[in-house]
Design a binder for these strands. Structure first.
Length: 882
RNA sequence: GGGCGCGUAGCUCAGCGGGAGAGCGCUCGCCUCACACGCGAGAGGCCGUAGGUUCAAAUCCUGCCGCGCCCACCA
């Protein structure tokens, strides 16, 4: 029999390798449009090609695979479409760093050679994360693996760009953008992280040009005063009424700065006068536009002071300039006040963490968003896209409402190049194909825009570009809109919102029906996992130590919907490993004891023991809960339901109570017990498969039912198995066993000490005890279990009350009366407290008249039971005389 | 400055109107014929705080305190 080969402990490594290879070979991950089946589709949020798998991915994969595997079993044509992202800045920076180590200057290397280097890098390291994702057990259709820079996506990007350009939704403009001096590129607003820092607010003085006085202004970036071209006040501000139209004198430049009036100035802040630095502040830029002030760009791309600034400061690093400007102003006695520390938010690059400069960088490309945000908002309000948890809807719509035009040009080499060409005659045009000549004048002397597009410009097309868009492919028609997008909240705006906008505009429908937003994986102490903290857990380490199923189970178990943090430690994975082993051993028992030959068939109802009926009932309850939980994306509840059922119910009570029938019963009893245990186990394996695919496949194979549990049917409902009678009988048996065990433990009686028990019980209970005599005696370790309608002689016995039944255990010399007295007194104290509370409630007229009758009845019954137990225990206490 | 989430057992979290729960950790006893990656029994909680609604509040409402997050062009 197969079970002879089953090891004492589950060993995941070999099983995982073998089954993943088999699934791939058999093409079980593949999905194709199939008209008579309903589609289910998830696109994988593409990780950075050169990245490595981290716990965040592990969580993503666990949840997505759970959804896909279940839908596949439910008969959907389930497609999980994987891919990777070229991650513009991130990858470019890596390759530049590598070149620097080799002493190569990218400029000398040239653009084309550089890009070749990146592709080489991608070929070399790009596949690694895919191999790592496979270790998770993810059932992606790898034949469809896509890359945001592959040919199809290149075309999708071109079509999207040209379409938006022709519709006037993409334009080129000059305005303040976010500039990262380290990566030397522009960033979109979403790529800037605002962090609170302790800076200083410096108030300094501009003397009036005519010498008649002065104006005080404040700033946190004193070096920007080098680029000031004016001073602004609120038009209604009395204090400055006479000054508008005059000018102040710049202390370091031979220049007068006009004083202008502008609504944007808040007269209640600081002195009410604002220095205007048009090239380094978007607000000031607009004021300058309105007032016709000059722009002076005092910063170079690398963050040093440019030649437009007064001479003494040129070439200085921006932080050095900050100090020097401060010193210079102080020498001139122009510093009025310094507030320090001054806490305020400063933008940082989301890639490298450098402080971002608002900067006038020359012309940049923008997506005009006003025609895109409305439909995207409406789709979410209508529920065409639904967020889980729903509370993300609010932040999403607010974000859309406040969205400004999206800067999509990046001064990088790695990425989708802006498909716009210029000719010497001043013509500009966007083109799907690389053109040979100017579309307007035919000049062959054309040049392509040097910039590349924001990585997120291609990412936003992901749900449809991967399905063949812009072509109306069968895939697109069948799988689009996709079913659910699973991701962390950190890219809700960066990515999710943009997919919705572009999907609606370009394809005409939402990209996905559901957006499932989960928390971020943290360490055990709920800290962010980071290399500098040294608390990073590598999913591959977890897989090697405990197995992929253990990792998946532990993540699923932790993934509660409302949480924004998911604290993970090796302990969690260890618990998963233990669970896997528990199931392995339960299967070892069942497969060894039952005659397994194909799909288990349940015995007729009248051949089922109370334990078997109870097991079927509990199993059905578990199935219901798992279904409901996964449908509502409550992964933790699904995992917990399976754990509770398998461990506490199936193993601890079910298997233990079935052993007498299974091992010592008549052939019919053995057959019935084996069949029920096998039937329930086999179905539970299927319910568990989405969470723990490898273990369940390995065990399920031993039933010899079909090719793979992956493509077996999802367990169908059996509401007729719910059995209140069996549940109440087993509830009584469990309570009785537990009471005796507890008594034994309290008296320090080892398992070897024989106990004989007499129970006075009502009719139903007597029937249960009769039917489960052997089972109860086995679990409670009793040699005798006598059952009677009348208590008989109670003297000399310890008394336990279990659901109204009186349990008598002879004290005869074995037991320490002092211990018994302690036990009784403790219990009586508990009873007294509960009874008092209960009596008080029942004395309350309001309770009796207003509470639901069922609640009142329940309270009465409770009090009655407590009083009965009290009487029994008090009698024993009196008898013992303590 | 706006918005959101969270404060329940030592830790991480479920519960969200009528008997305080789980996993891990801890204590005690067990190598009981699937499993010591195990079995059994326990200890441990004025459910952040003050008020309100209700016959009844961990659960609903309000204030406060404490954490955390997101958004924001107040110099």
């Amino acid at each position: 029999m197969v079970t002879e080969t089953m090891a004492r402990a589950y060993e995941p490594a070999e099983v995982e390798k073998r089954w993943y290879a088999t699934w791939m070979e058999r093409g079980l991950f593949r999905a194709e449009p199939t008209p008579d089946r309903k589609p289910f589709c998830i696109v994988l949020p593409p990780p950075n090609v050169t990245g490595a798998l981290h716990m965040g991915h592990a969580l993503d994969h666990t949840l997505q695979d759970m959804l896909v595997r279940r839908k596949r079993m439910q008969g959907f044509e389930a497609l999980w479409l994987p891919g990777t992202d070229h991650a513009g800045i991130g990858t470019e920076v890596l390759v530049r760093r590598q070149l620097a180590e080799e002493g190569i200057d990218p400029q000398e290397l040239g653009r084309e050679a550089f890009i070749e280097r990146v592709w080489a890098w991608k070929e070399r390291y790009g596949g690694r994360i895919v191999e790592q994702m496979k270790r998770m057990g993810s059932s992606c259709d790898w034949d469809r693996l896509r890359f945001t820079m592959d040919e199809g996506l290149q075309r999708a990007v071109r079509v999207a760009f040209v379409g938006l350009y022709d519709d006037g939704l993409i334009y080129r403009g000059e305005r303040i953008i976010n500039w990262c001096p380290t990566d030397q590129t522009a960033l979109s607003d979403s790529e800037v992280e605002h962090r609170e820092v302790d800076g200083e607010l410096i108030t300094f003085r501009y003397p009036l040009a005519d010498g008649s006085g002065h104006v005080d202004v404040a700033t946190t970036r004193i070096e920007t005063m080098l680029g000031d071209t004016g001073v602004a006040v609120h038009p209604g501000d009395e204090r400055y009424r006479g000054l508008v139209g005059k000018a102040v004198r710049h202390p370091f430049a031979d220049q007068d700065l006009p004083i202008v009036a502008d609504q944007a100035v808040d007269p209640s802040f600081g002195t009410g006068a604002v220095k205007v630095t048009p090239a380094h502040d978007s607000n000031d830029f607009e004021i300058a536009e309105r007032a016709g002030l000059a722009r002076r760009n005092i910063l170079s791309a690398d963050g040093t002071i440019s030649d437009e600034a007064p001479k003494p400061f040129r070439g200085l690093d921006r932080y050095e300039a900050r100090k020097r400007v401060m010193e210079a102003l102080r020498e001139l006695d122009l510093i009025v006040a310094v507030e320090r520390p001054y806490r305020h938010a400063v933008g940082h690059c989301y890639r490298c963490g450098s402080e971002v400069e608002p900067w006038l960088s020359g012309k940049q490309w923008f997506v005009a968003v006003e025609r895109l945000t409305g439909p995207a908002k409406q789709a979410a309000i209508d529920g065409r896209v639904a967020f889980f948890p729903e509370r993300w809807l609010g932040p999403y719509t607010t974000w859309l409402d406040n969205l400004r035009d999206w800067n999509i040009s990046r001064q990088l080499w790695w990425g989708h190049r802006v498909p716009v060409w210029y000719c010497p005659n001043g013509h500009e045009f966007a083109s799907m194909e690389d053109p040979d000549a100017c579309r307007e004048c035919g000049s062959a002397d054309i040049e392509q825009d040097p910039d590349v597009l924001d990585t997120w410009f291609s990412s936003q097309l992901w749900p449809f570009s991967t399905l063949g868009w812009p072509d109306e492919t069968e895939d697109l028609t069948y799988f689009y809109p996709t079913s659910v997008l699973v991701t962390g909240y950190e890219i809700l705006y960066l990515w999710v919102a943009r997919m919705i906008m572009s999907g609606l505009y370009l394809v005409g429908d939402v990209p996905f029906r559901h957006v499932l937003i989960h928390g971020l994986v943290r360490d055990e102490q709920n800290r962010k996992m980071s290399k500098s903290l040294g608390n990073v857990i590598d999913p591959l380490d977890v897989i090697e130590r405990y197995g992929a199923d253990a990792l998946r189970y532990s993540l699923a178990r932790l993934a509660t919907p409302e949480q924004q943090n998911i604290p993970f430690g090796m302990r969690e994975a260890e618990a998963g490993r233990n669970f896997a082993n528990k199931i392995w051993n339960a299967a070892r028992l069942v497969l060894g004891a039952a005659q397994i030959d194909g799909a288990p068939v349940l015995p007729p109802e009248d051949a089922r023991s109370p334990v078997e009926r109870w097991l079927l009932s509990r199993h059905e309850a578990c199935r219901e809960e798992v279904d409901r939980a996964i449908d509502e994306y409550r992964f933790a509840d699904a995992a917990q339901a399976l754990h509770r059922f398998l461990w506490s119910e199936y193993c601890d009570w079910g298997l233990e109570m079935e052993k007498p029938r299974l091992y010592e019963g008549s052939p019919e009893e053995r057959e019935a017990a084996g069949s029920v245990l096998a039937w329930v186990l086999e179905r539970t394996l299927r319910l568990l498969h989405p969470i723990m695919p490898f273990l369940t496949e390995e065990l399920w194979q031993r039933f010899g039912i079909g090719d793979s549990i992956m493509v077996s049917d999802w367990p169908e409902p059996h509401p007729e198995h719910r059995d209140a009678d069996a549940e109440s009988r087993l509830g009584f048996a469990e309570d009785l066993v537990t009471a005796v065990r507890s008594f034994r433990s309290g008296h320090r009686l080892g398992p070897g000490v024989a106990l004989a028990v007499r129970v006075r019980a009502d009719g139903g209970q007597r029937e249960t005890l009769g039917a489960l005599d052997e089972e109860i005696r086995r679990l409670a370790r009793l040699d005798r279990l006598d059952v009677a309608e009348e208590p008989g002689e109670a003297a000399g016995h310890a008394r336990l009350v279990v659901q109204g039944a009186e349990v008598l255990i002879p004290l005869a010399g074995v037991l320490d009366p002092a211990v018994e007295c302690d036990r009784l007194r403790e219990r009586l104290a508990g009873i007294a407290e509960q009874a008092e509370r209960s009596a008080r409630k029942l004395d309350n007229q309001g309770f009796l008249s207003k509470a639901a009758p069922a609640v009142v009845d329940k309270e009465r019954a409770k009090l009655g039971a407590l009083e009965e137990e009290r009487a029994v225990l008090e009698a024993q206490l009196a008898e013992l005389g303590c």
